[in-house]
Nucleic acid binder design. Structure first.
Lengths: 141, 141
DNA sequence: TTCGTTGCAAACATTTTGCAGTTTC
DNA sequence: GAAACTGCAAAATGTTTGCAACGAA
């Protein structure tokens, strides 16, 4: 892994990502920091997110309406994606840890880094709105 | 759901997808049919795949290196994605059926259409090649 | 001074779309 | 004949990248 200098903006990207549980898009992170850093670009967000992924401290959990959704929590947990509002929520009712991966490794003679479990449907909030009032809010924020 | 006419090309797209277990990209399907139908376009593949998804007879199982991978088998089963060669394989060792979805519905008061379980790592074949000979073969065909 | 980091904008790659011609019913 | 379907190519979209300026060590 290559040498890294300290960078204020890189820190900010990670801390914004860690401060929310909405599993935001790169653009959302960008918009969130643009006011604080008038000199700030989307490229920096992408570059650093990609760096974090390499380091294993960030993962992408789903692609919703063409946009990748990022998570700063890398401990194994599932997600729920609402097809109406596009929200991505944590699902923490499984103890689907490393065991599962090892089972696959033995069974298929392969190496498993991680797995991703994702449920798709309509979230509680959208379900209780009237049938056709649903809108697509990409990041639901 | 809107009215559909019969279409030879639409049939062909579905049948090519159903004839393989490689979870191909739209482009792969296009290349596979281009010889049989000299008059054939990628747009048709995308339009029909998107139609099939609406109908629930096709799902996307993963995005590998920026390209969506399609599956004509919609019964619940997991997948394995190799980060070296980009292959996508079926994983059939779970009886993770509808039960799981219903558990989430009760727990979160939501509606679950389906879930997707995907393992990421290095496939058996790549694992047994020498360490750095690995290449990225997008559709591994 | 060296080299990692960034803004900016252009480049990229996949997917979507508008339109005019073709096919299905 | 009406409406669905398609080829084609242009447009749209999210993401990546090259380069010169900037910042950290």
């Amino acid at each position: 892994m290559r040498k890294l200098n300290f960078s204020r903006k890189r820190d900010a990207v990670l801390s914004v990502l860690r401060s929310t549980n909405t599993h935001p898009t790169a653009e959302w992170i960008y918009n969130n920091l643009k006011s604080e850093y008038p000199d700030f670009s989307l490229g920096t967000v992408y570059r650093n997110l990609s760096l974090f992924k390499e380091q294993g401290i960030v993962v992408t959990v789903a692609n919703v309406n063409g946009q990748e959704r990022y998570d700063g929590v890398v401990t194994a947990h599932a997600h729920f994606v609402c097809k109406k509002c596009g929200s991505v929520a944590d699902v923490n009712c499984f103890n689907d840890s490393r065991d599962l991966d090892e089972r696959i490794e033995r069974l298929y003679d392969c190496e498993v880094d991680r797995h991703s479990l994702c449920f798709y449907g309509i979230c509680s909030s959208c379900k209780h709105k009237s049938a056709d009032s649903g809108q697509i809010n990409d990041a639901s924020v």
